[in-house]
Amino acid sequence: MSLLTLEEKKHEVKTWLKKTVIDPEVVHQTLGISIDHLSPELMLEASKKLIKINKLETEPDNRDDIRFNTFHGIEDFVQEHVEKDAGKVQARAKMKMQQKKDLSWLHAGFFSPQIRSIISGGAQLSQNIEGHNPIDNLDVSTKVTKLGPGGIPGIDAVPDESRQVNSSYFGFLDPFRISEAKTVGVDHRFAHNVVKGRDNKLYRLVLDHAKNPKWINHEEFLRSKVEIPEY
């Protein structure tokens, strides 16, 4: 077994670091540099900021800022379940193909459990709608929560600061339609003219300088000067 030389080790480390993926917008917001992968410069700047925070020389970033969030819907969870083979359905299919050498074993609904587990498998993000009131259907369709898989695991884990009013929500999350229960601060509703994009960012319809309608994401919105119209 041949051992790597020092230069080869350095090359392997640099290659691995370049393969990592991070959000350049978040890095620019927190550290003031634009980079989309791990690097010695990034780790040095992050270390400097942590030291300053520990010495009370600077304030920590607001972790509930909307720019630090990504938004996911059922289409994202379906894709994730299929790509990561939830329940090992695809692995079982591959094994059966190797054994049978044909598709005689394949029946209707063989892959349905991957989809059913999202909708009716007891997932925290699924919600039944009685449908007696059309307004209730609209209300649930605009709901967004920080709880569940990929987010905060439970109510007891919600920090107090996450329940406070956050200025970065302006224009994207409804400040009036909020939960009055234990989920206050973590359950929200989208504001009017707000949609989720395919890049998992929120988009809002605004008017540009020429009064033409334009969709911009929440990062561009929060970087821009916005005028509130008078009605």
Rank of each mutant, 00 (worst) to 15 (best):
P213C: 08
A181S: 15
D187I: 01
V194R: 01
K201I: 02
K211M: 15
R189A: 07
W215V: 07
L222R: 03
S167Q: 14
L205I: 10
K182M: 06
V165T: 15
K182W: 10
F190Q: 06
L202W: 02
D187E: 11
F176K: 13
P175F: 03
L207I: 08
V195T: 12
F221L: 08
E219T: 13
R198I: 06
L205R: 11
W215M: 10
K214S: 13
N217M: 02
L205A: 03
E219R: 11
H218Y: 02
K225E: 14
E219G: 08
N166Y: 08
S167M: 08
S162Y: 14
D187G: 02
H218N: 13
K196D: 05
K225G: 13
R177K: 05
E220H: 10
T183K: 05
R198H: 12
P213I: 07
V186H: 02
A210K: 14
S224L: 07
E227A: 03
L205Y: 09
D174F: 00
A157H: 14
P175V: 12
L205G: 05
A181W: 09
W215G: 03
H192I: 07
N217A: 01
N217C: 07
D160C: 01
S224D: 15
A210Q: 15
E180H: 11
W215D: 12
R204S: 08
F170P: 04
H192E: 15
V165M: 07
F190D: 00
V186A: 04
F172V: 00
V195M: 06
K225Y: 12
S167A: 14
H192W: 11
D187Y: 02
D174C: 03
D208L: 03
H209C: 12
R204H: 11
F170C: 06
L207Q: 13
I216G: 03
N193P: 05
E161I: 01
K201T: 05
N193L: 01
L207C: 13
K211N: 15
G185Q: 06
H209G: 11
H188D: 00
N193I: 05
V195C: 01
F170W: 10
K182C: 08
R177E: 11
V226N: 09
K196T: 09
H188R: 04
K211T: 14
R163N: 05
V184Y: 02
S167I: 10
V226A: 06
P175R: 08
E161P: 03
V165L: 08
V186W: 01
V186C: 00
Y169F: 15
R204P: 10
D187T: 09
E161C: 01
D174Y: 00
L173Q: 05
E161Y: 10
G171K: 03
I216K: 04
E227Y: 07
N212T: 15
F190C: 06
R163D: 09
W215I: 02
H218C: 01
S224Q: 11
V186Q: 05
K201S: 05
K214A: 12
L202P: 00
A210M: 13
R177A: 01
E161H: 09
S162F: 10
V184S: 03
P213G: 09
A157Q: 14
H218D: 12
E220G: 03
A157P: 11
K182G: 02
W215F: 12
N193K: 04
V206L: 08
N217P: 12
